[in-house]
Structure formats: structure tokens, C-alpha cells
Design a protein around this nucleic acid. Structure first.
Length: 448
DNA sequence: TCTGGGGTCCTAGGACCC
DNA sequence: TCTGGGGTCCTAGGACCC
């Protein structure tokens, strides 16, 4: 058995913990550059604000309906997320975080009333963190996700499902507590698009074929589905029918790629601005790489103009650069900047750039390859600059203690830009709340 | 004026090999 | 007129997730 626990409207709920005045009011949290809505309170959803909707399209609701918008405060959300995961871990030795606001709890081998334990978990998170959660419990992960969705819907739209069920399943839904008839009633009132793994495209295709509800999908002909869709989707359907197809992970897997990308606060037209940004992203990506104990064998750099500015000429090149596996910021930054410089063309309004580290492997696996290269050099080339793991470790520790950016790779333009008061590409974040739980100088103040 | 930033997995098609 | 077939590896792109 699996449970999926997630925080309702996570970012909005966290903001409300620290500012109770936001309670009951329509609230959205915005992406970087305050560009789009990435979290919505129930009240904001009721106003019709869509997920990822551009802020400029709903800004007028501030005046007419009291809509409040905050810039995303990821440092705060990550910390609250870690606390939530820690509480979940009291209920099973195997809790696998799935995203910042949700985790799968492996209940295999856990005895007793799982519904009651899940309700207890909910209450504990609410008491200790002030965050509202929902829990879905089922024999497969896909069903647990769906049960979670049903638990939320029962809570938020009591009229959507038969009333007796709605009342029972609000906040916590365990599919094994249900009779076959009750399960059918729920599945026939749930759209296929609400299933984990069914996105816009697949939902449209299913609808066109007359498969509208989850019950339709559970009863659809497997051979036909397999012909029309991929093996991924086949697994989804099998899971809906109760056959587990997704493994129980023991430990969170190391990332296979690390991406740092950002839209710019305003268009960048000069090569220096692009290089500054790419240098910064490469540097951040290198830190993440070392944090998970990996080295990268290749990196990809992309820069792109805005597809939304239809009058602009578009240019969106990307370049992949193989490297001798390394986690050394100096080398990664150098390679990324060289790539960015060679792709840049004057006369374009660049809107975004990114650096992706690929071909990741464990740091130990490469051993003393540096020395190997020295021995095998064919005479003509000069020896490659060796990696400096101790230097990188010292840099990471200083940045951890004194804040990101305290120590940087000095050869790059971003260091200069930071000194001269902010780079031309830097993001806008006008509405961010304090990082209450992770910065001493931003601790909340209680007045007697 | 203004449109997120991460990730995963699978598939199709080309290059290359025998 | 007519130009194999099967395998592997790699990359780009598409679907999905939050």
C-alpha cells in the first residue's frame, strides 16, 4: 500500500502560516520575474486564475477582487517542505519525496488502520507546521495519486461526488475502504485528465475516442490503447486497475541531469550580458553537482529570444560540449562561457538562457584520471589544469556559511556586475516575503 | 511593458556497422 | 525498372510531472 500526502496549495499555505491576514483572501504566488502565477489559493482559483497564467492577465483582479500576489520565496518553501517530510517519516521508514509539496509513503509492512494513521499525520502537520494536507491511500502509486485528488475534490467541491461519499473522503481517501459500487461511482465522476500521467494531449485523444471518465479508461480495451499510446501510458492504465508497475524506491536516485536556467528581467542584447548570466548559471549548476557528489561529462548551453515577442527575429541556438568528467566550477564556467560567446549573434533580444550538466556519474568513479592524462599526453599538448576538489569544497563551505555568491569564480564578468550593483539580466522579485526560517536577520518578530 | 524553472522517460530517425 | 536487413548508438524532440 502507498499513501500520497501533499500540501494543499503549498506556496500559498506557507505564506499564510507567517501572515495570517492572508487567510481567506484570494492569493497567488508568482514565478521569477513575477511573470506567471505558479500557486493559487482556493479563493484565487474561484476567481478563475489558471495555473501558470501570466500575471499581467489577472493583475486587474487586485483592484476589483482584492487579489494579492507575492513573489516566490523558494528558500522558505524548501525549508517548510523538509519539515513536512520529516513528520511524514514518523509514519513509515520509507518516505520518498516526489516534489516540494508531496511524498509517497510506503506502507508495505505497516500494520493497523492506515486511514486512521493518515488522519493522524494530517493533524500533526497542521499542528506543528500550520499546513493543510490531503492524503490518498491505495495499492498502486497511480491510484494513490488519484485518491489524493478525490480527497481534495471532496473537501473543496462537496457537490461533485455523491454526498455521503464526499463527507467521508474529504481530506483522506483510502480506496480499500470503499465497496466496488462506491469506487465505480467515484471513477465515473472523475475525468481521465485528472489521472497522473494523462496530460493535455492524451486527454484530448481519449476524449475524441469516447473515453471520458476514469471508469471508461479502466474498462477500455488494452490492445487498442497500446496501439494508440506508448508503454508509459499502458503502465498508467494497469496501475489504475490495481496492478503495481512502478517500483518502490529505496533511496532517492541521483539526478541524471542538472539544469539552471532563467528568464531575464529585461531583454539582453550584448554579449557581455549573456556571458555574465551563463557564467552565473554554470556556477550554480556546479554547486548542485558537487552537492550530490557527481561529476559531469558534458554540458549544454542554450540562449533564446522570446517566442512571445512575435515581431522580434528569433534565435534559439544550443550547444553541447563534452568535457573530461569534472565538478570543478572553474572549468565548467569556462566551457559554458566559451559556448555562449560562440553562439551569440548581435541584433537579437535574448530573453532566456540556461546551462545543463549531463552525463553525470559518481565523483569517485573517475579516480585519478588527471594523472592518467598527464602520463598519456602525446607530447605536443600542455598538461590540462588539474581539478581542485579541496578548493571547491572550501568555496562551497564559505558560500553555505556567508550566503550564496560570497565566493565566486573570479575570471567571469558576473563578479564585476555584482560589484557594480546588479547584472542587466537579473530577475525581478518585488513582492518576496522574508525567509523567516532560514535567515537570522529575517526571523519573524513577535510583539507582546 | 508583461508569459516559470525545474525534472523524467520514451520514441523516431540518422549514422554507422557487418 | 530493380539497390538488404538487422543491429547499436546517439540525438532531438515530445509527452508527461510539479
Amino acid at each position: 500500500m502507498f499513501a500520497l500526502v501533499d500540501v494543499n496549495n503549498m506556496y500559498c499555505s506557507v505564506e499564510r502560516v507567517f501572515d495570517p491576514r492572508l487567510e481567506g483572501r484570494p492569493l497567488v504566488v508568482l514565478s521569477s520575474n513575477d511573470g506567471a502565477c505558479i500557486a493559487r489559493s482556493n479563493e484565487a482559483k474561484d476567481l478563475g486564475v489558471q495555473m501558470a497564467q501570466p500575471w499581467f492577465q489577472v493583475r486587474h483582479l487586485q483592484k476589483t477582487h482584492g487579489l494579492i500576489a507575492l513573489s516566490a520565496n523558494f528558500e522558505l518553501y524548501s525549508d517548510m517542505s523538509a519539515r513536512m517530510m520529516a513528520i511524514a517519516s514518523r509514519y513509515s521508514p520509507n518516505v520518498v519525496p516526489y516534489s516540494i509539496d508531496e511524498a509517497f509513503i510506503d506502507f508495505h509492512g505497516i500494520h493497523g488502520d492506515l486511514t486512521a494513521q493518515s488522519r493522524h499525520l494530517r493533524t500533526t502537520v497542521l499542528q506543528e507546521l500550520g499546513l493543510p494536507t490531503s492524503v490518498g491511500i491505495a495499492p498502486t502509486k497511480t491510484l494513490a495519486k488519484l485518491a489524493n485528488h478525490i480527497a481534495k475534490t471532496c473537501d473543496r467541491k462537496p457537490g461533485h461526488y455523491p454526498q455521503a461519499l464526499s463527507h467521508r473522503l474529504a481530506q483522506v481517501c483510502n480506496t480499500t475502504d470503499l465497496t466496488a459500487t462506491e469506487l465505480e461511482a467515484l471513477m465515473s465522476a472523475t475525468d481521465v485528465g485528472d489521472v497522473w500521467g494523462v496530460g493535455r494531449k492524451i486527454a484530448a485523444k481519449l476524449h475524441a475516442g469516447g473515453v471520458r471518465t476514469v471508469l471508461d479508461l479502466m474498462r477500455a480495451d488494452m490492445a487498442t490503447l497500446r496501439r494508440q499510446f506508448s508503454v508509459v501510458f499502458e503502465k498508467t492504465v494497469l496501475e489504475l486497475r490495481g496492478t503495481p508497475c512502478m517500483e518502490v524506491e529505496e533511496a532517492p536516485a541521483a539526478k541524471q541531469q542538472i539544469l539552471v536556467s532563467r528568464s531575464f528581467g529585461k531583454p539582453v542584447t550584448q554579449v557581455d550580458g549573456i556571458v555574465e548570466a551563463v557564467s552565473e548559471f554554470a556556477s550554480r549548476a556546479s554547486e548542485k553537482l558537487r552537492l550530490q557528489g557527481s561529476v559531469a561529462g558534458a554540458l549544454q548551453v542554450f540562449i533564446r529570444t522570446s517566442p512571445f515577442r512575435e515581431g522580434d527575429r528569433q534565435h534559439s541556438p544550443s550547444m553541447t560540449v563534452p568535457m573530461r568528467p569534472t565538478a570543478d566550477s572553474r572549468k565548467i564556467v569556462q566551457a559554458a562561457c566559451d559556448a555562449a560567446r560562440s553562439m551569440f549573434r548581435p541584433g537579437f533580444n535574448y530573453a532566456k538562457a540556461g546551462v545543463m550538466l549531463m552525463d553525470l556519474r559518481e565523483a569517485q568513479a573517475i579516480g585519478d584520471q588527471g594523472e592518467l592524462d598527464l602520463g598519456g599526453s602525446d607530447g605536443g599538448e600542455s598538461a590540462p589544469e588539474p581539478d581542485r576538489p579541496a578548493l571547491m569544497a572550501a568555496m562551497d563551505e564559505l558560500n553555505r556559511r556567508f550566503g550564496r555568491g560570497a565566493v565566486r569564480v573570479g575570471s567571469t564578468a558576473s563578479a564585476l556586475a555584482a560589484d557594480s550593483g546588479g547584472a542587466s539580466w537579473s530577475v525581478r522579485q518585488d513582492r518576496r516575503t522574508p525567509r523567516y526560517t532560514t535567515r537570522w536577520e529575517e526571523l519573524p518578530v513577535v510583539r507582546a
